[in-house]
Nucleic acid binder design. Structure first.
Lengths: 114, 114
DNA sequence: CAGCATCCTGCGTGATACTG
DNA sequence: CAGTATCACGCAGGATGCTG
């Protein structure tokens, strides 16, 4: 769980950074530009199969974790009707190609059985 | 958790297939050819930071899961001193480039730690 | 709107002991 | 050697209600 993991096995670090059901998809959604909390939530619901709702606690946690890893940045506008934007950091953007690789694999090997 | 996930979000399927601490590393180890149970276990211990031992139950489960996903194949020699080999299937090999991408990312963005 | 507080549940992970 | 059996635990994940 310490830095050694990064050295000995980058994969472990990668897995830890994107562990959870939504992190990768959040990063992917954010690649097109900043998004608000609600937009992310709705975007997540769109792709899911039967997910009706996402527990705020869960999404909140994912977002916070991503921010702590330095992959995304939270921008609070501090307005009366709250408005918060999340955007990829430079580190976060470095993830995009990897996610793209994963998605390409999926499209190739999951038959994209539409 | 059904096929819809594969369609709507390949990433979810990917995550499910390689969920767990060892699966990705097992696949990676296997890319160089078939390996025996003990070899895999020892290989896993080598890269880890402080991992003393891997619970057989855990490794066993990972292996079984990978086999059920059709990513690896179990070959039991049925000899008196048990000998079992695991090898990548065609599907399993399709994972290698993706893992390579992850590792490349790690070497690029985590090498600061080394 | 964008969360936080609280409670609950399942499963992934680990340790130990045993077996064909 | 290559596992299985059993017990235990932490934490991710979900549901509901409340707030600034």
């Amino acid at each position: 769980m310490d830095k050694n993991d990064s050295k000995g096995c980058p994969v472990l670090t990668f897995q830890r950074m994107v562990s959870g059901k939504y992190k990768i998809r959040i990063l992917w959604d954010l690649k097109d530009g900043p998004r608000r909390y609600g937009e992310i939530r709705n975007g997540l619901l769109r792709g899911a199969s039967g997910s009706r709702e996402i527990a705020p606690r869960v999404l909140s946690r994912e977002l916070k974790a991503l921010a702590e890893f330095g992959l995304i940045q939270r921008k609070d506008f501090g307005t009366v009707p709250p408005k918060v934007e999340y955007r990829l950091t430079r580190a976060g953007k470095s993830f995009v190609p990897v996610i793209a690789a994963i998605r390409r694999w999926g499209e190739r090997h999951l038959t994209a059985a539409a």
